[in-house]
Design a protein around this nucleic acid. Structure first.
Ligand SMILES: [Zn+2]
Ligand SMILES: [Zn+2]
Ligand SMILES: [Zn+2]
Ligand SMILES: [Zn+2]
Lengths: 140, 140
DNA sequence: TGCGATTATGAGAAAGATTCTCAATTTTTT
DNA sequence: AAAAAATTGAGAATCTTTCTCATAATCGCA
């Protein structure tokens, strides 16, 4: 039940907020732009304004319900915060996103920060490239 | 002599390109937005259009002369490519950017990619937080 | 050095992404 | 149910970046 998530986050339970959460929960890609969410809602007959989507996503982010990612290409991408941190690998060819978590890298980041007198609040590690598998299907 | 850099990159030597290169070379911050460059040029009496700056930076990037970074906040940041790869630490308070390079992290990235059948073309690692030093000067 | 072909520039328009404004609607409280 | 408070939707506004196209600068060659 998602209403609990919203209440727990100190946000009032409204129809747009519920629907946006639902989309984020159900999307198999996991990583969606505000426009993606807007289109998916339209497809389901929900007429929720784009401004509301951006507004709600920002509230969700502040509440720790979603994470905002900055892949190259300008548009921000959002994903549900599933409680476990991870980083990303993005295929330039297909746009496919794969998540990974590496203890060694996470630990090194802390060590590097400490050595520089820096307190890490957040970080972003993104690998750009291609999956060898996707190599077969080449487009003209 | 910067004209060599341009010629080597297969770019014609024009006044705007030279000036933009100069600004990038002289800036102590090293990391500048297109607007930053635009303002610095204006201050020096150079009247170069913002469109030209974006255009030239994109050409420089394609030629490997500069790198484009995507810090959070939308605006792209550019820096001269000094031949050695490095990653970034950004202070949310002051905007200060510190560079670092860690062999262990670089190596782990390759290992992770290999394990996923992924060929890395590029990557971006950014640590966001604060420098403990900068803590003294608190605002409001 | 001077010309002409080619390429680059500048200004403003245009596009893309995100935020803002505010009247109307929905939620919550009384 | 009514009043008070918060949220929404539509479009305007803003911000960053790209595009268009007439003008200007660059480069190879005579
Ligand atoms: Zn991480
Ligand atoms: Zn993710
Ligand atoms: Zn690196
Ligand atoms: Zn740098």
């Amino acid at each position: 039940m998602e209403t609990q998530d919203l209440k727990k986050a100190g946000l009032k339970v409204t129809h747009p907020r519920m629907k946006i959460l639902e989309i984020l929960e159900r999307a198999p890609e996991h990583h969606l732009t505000a426009e993606d969410i807007y289109r998916k809602l339209l497809e389901e007959g929900e007429q929720i304004g784009l401004a509301t989507i951006y507004r709600v996503l920002t509230q969700f982010e502040a509440a720790g319900l979603v994470n905002r990612l900055h892949f190259e290409g300008g548009q921000a991408v959002f994903e549900l915060d599933r409680g476990t941190h991870h980083d990303h690998m993005v295929c330039s060819r297909t746009g496919r996103v794969v998540e990974f978590y590496d203890e060694i890298i996470e630990k090194r980041q802390q060590e590097i920060a400490k050595a520089h007198g820096f307190r890490i609040r957040d970080h972003s590690l993104i690998l750009y490239g291609e999956f060898i598998d996707d190599e077969s299907a080449s487009e003209s």
